[in-house]
């Protein structure tokens, strides 16, 4: 049966109907699942990053066992792929890609963004990470080591970015507000406060 040419919305509606009629998956279950999935967002990962910036013990836990660190701040990880955390340091940067599909640390960042799933990002990042980062205006010093992580199997990877200068006394909330989705995949780096002259 050739399913390639059919209308996608129609196919979804028919499959959903058939599953509901047979009592396999109800519409209510799907609606509930959508609501649960919508709740995960980059704010969760940003909170972990901010906490790691302020608390060395949490940072150590996060780097050693991302799933345990996520659980410890109330993010449900049971039954999900293990979370691996790639620790950026001054002079060492990480960027995550999934060349085969779009493996993404959804529990802590939510749905993968459009660009992460795109052919251009998947094809180019393993070969030309600096060129890809430049699409976001991210320019790393030439002597910074760039490690690309191709997420090919059972782990899901997030980047723990370096803490921006000038944020020494900041609260966890204020720090978390600095951290964007792209910072935790490694296409961008968190921007510190604007320097007033």
């Amino acid at each position: 049966m050739n399913l390639v040419q059919v209308d996608s919305a129609r196919l979804l509606a028919i499959v959903t109907d058939m599953l509901a009629e047979q009592g396999i998956v109800s519409r209510a279950e799907i609606a509930e699942r959508m609501e649960i999935t919508d709740r995960a967002s980059p704010e969760l990962g940003a909170r972990m990053v901010a906490k790691a910036w302020r608390e060395p013990e949490f940072r150590a836990l996060m780097v050693a066992d991302g799933s345990a660190a996520a659980e410890s701040v109330g993010i449900r990880m049971r039954g999900l792929p293990p979370l691996g955390v790639l620790e950026n340091r001054p002079g060492h940067h990480h960027v995550v890609v999934c060349t085969l599909c779009s493996c993404y640390p959804r529990a802590v960042l939510g749905y993968p963004p459009f660009w992460f799933k795109s052919t251009a990002y998947r094809a180019r990042t393993v070969r030309d990470p600096r060129g890809v980062l430049a699409e976001w205006g991210t320019a790393l010093p030439a002597d910074t080591k760039v490690t690309v992580v191709d997420s090919t199997a059972d782990y899901r990877w997030m980047v723990l970015p370096t803490r921006p200068e000038g944020t020494q006394d900041w609260s966890e909330e204020d720090l978390a507000a600095l951290v964007r989705e792209g910072d935790m995949i490694g296409v961008t780096v968190p921007r510190g406060p604007a320097i007033s002259c």
Partner: peptide, 18 residues
């Protein structure tokens, strides 16, 4: 990376392999 792509711009490439 340069073992995989002669024009690579990264310094290290890490992959999960069984």
């Amino acid at each position: 990376p340069t073992d995989l792509f002669p024009d690579a711009t990264g310094d290290d490439l890490v992959i999960e392999i069984f």
